[in-house]
Amino acid sequence: MIIVQNLNKSFDGRQVLCDINVEFLNGQTNLIIGQSGSGKTVLMNNIVGLLQPEAGHILYDGRDITVMSKKERTLLRREMGMLFQGSALFDSMTVLDNVMFPLDMFSTMNYKERKKRAQFCLDRVNMLEAQDKFPNELSGGMQKRTAIARAIAMEPHYLFCDEPNSGLDPKTSIVIDKLISDITHENNITTVVNTHDMNSVIGIGENILFIDNGRKAWQGSNKDVLTSDNKQLNDFIFASEFSKQLRQDIIANMQ
């Protein structure tokens, strides 16, 4: 479980995150949603330690990353896996080498064991056949799947996904969402997904945090989203006339 307490962050005097308090639960797909520029990515970068908050605490199962020494933080990071918006695969390495990289760096396995583990992870995301290809030979969805395989190679306790569906078609997005959700439940890990894809919200959002202008505006599950009377949330999720009508129909059917 990850607990964020009273988190504040500003850039050049502009407050980007204001007093964020939230719990990301173990074995669940936790979503951070909000408009572009609302502070989602800044929040995630603070949580993983790429940015240092001005105030507040971030507890990883009781361990506060904001007060850790560099060495302790490095060790904690080895328990994390992260899927970046642009996949962030290493251009000079094949798909297999990318997935083997964290194992090469930190595991005590021999070469055969490392390769077997990497191939298992690639098989899990249906990328085994492309193991000898380079990232520039892959489609966006394949790159994302490879990045997921790399993120889970070290069997992380915490998985972070920054905009996993950006640039992907709806069908591929659903595949990626399902993969993230399945991996979370199979391995009982704490997954935090940063997204503004509404299919993800409805499909995999077990614990959703809605941020508006750097403040926590709402928290609940995907079931609560449909019935919430939070105006900011409804304006964000059901932005189009079609989706507004759809929501009204669903509520009417429920009654």
Binding site: V48, L50, T74, L75, L76, R77, R78, M80, M82, F84, Q85, G86, A88, L89, F90, D91, F101, P102, M105, F106, M154, F160
Partner: peptide
């Protein structure tokens, strides 16, 4: 520079690599 803007350096940091 390309590694930086494509977040490959961030990926290394997250893995705990210097």
């Amino acid at each position: 520079g390309t590694m930086r803007i494509t977040q490959q350096i961030d990926a290394l940091e997250i893995m705990g690599v210097n």
